[in-house]
Amino acid sequence: MTAGGVLLIGYGNPGRGDDGLGPALARRIEARALPGVTVEIDYQVTVDHALLIAGFGTVVFADAAVDAAGPFYFRKLDGGVLPDLGSHSVTPEAALALAGLLFGAAPQGFVLGLGGASFGAMAEGLSPTAADNLDRAEGFLLGWLCDRSLVGADGRLPA
């Protein structure tokens, strides 16, 4: 399958404090209406995302992270790993693998983990730390998306 464009999936539960970091970032990027960038917001990544991501050349999964050493991290996903599935959600690696197995797609995948500090309570809104990390991650992602030396016209990273 030949596909282009960048898909940003921001996921998490805004009703659980900093778990809403992924959707918060996605909403900011969506508001900018960047050409070639499609934004999807969900509670979590599920198997049906395989069909969606199969239509793109590059997929960025943005999620809150409990293990971020700094404000955020960004890493390329290893397409060679076939992880087990959770019951109701899947890892970004699994979604990519399913897209390949089921629909013959091979998008490049990246994870943008945004450091959160408050996950323990049912609460809306981000902690001050998370809000700051969101600003930083947004700046990074905007640069990454707009850097034409990184993202080609087809939405894929150069080899």
């Binding site: 395989a50 069909l51 076939l82 693998a97 399913l98 197995l101 089921l102």
Partner: peptide, 15 residues
């Protein structure tokens, strides 16, 4: 993934 390798149609239908 093993299910899909053996029966890809099953996994595709589910999605």
């Amino acid at each position: 993934f093993e299910v899909i390798r053996q029966n890809p149609e099953l996994g595709r239908r589910a999605v």
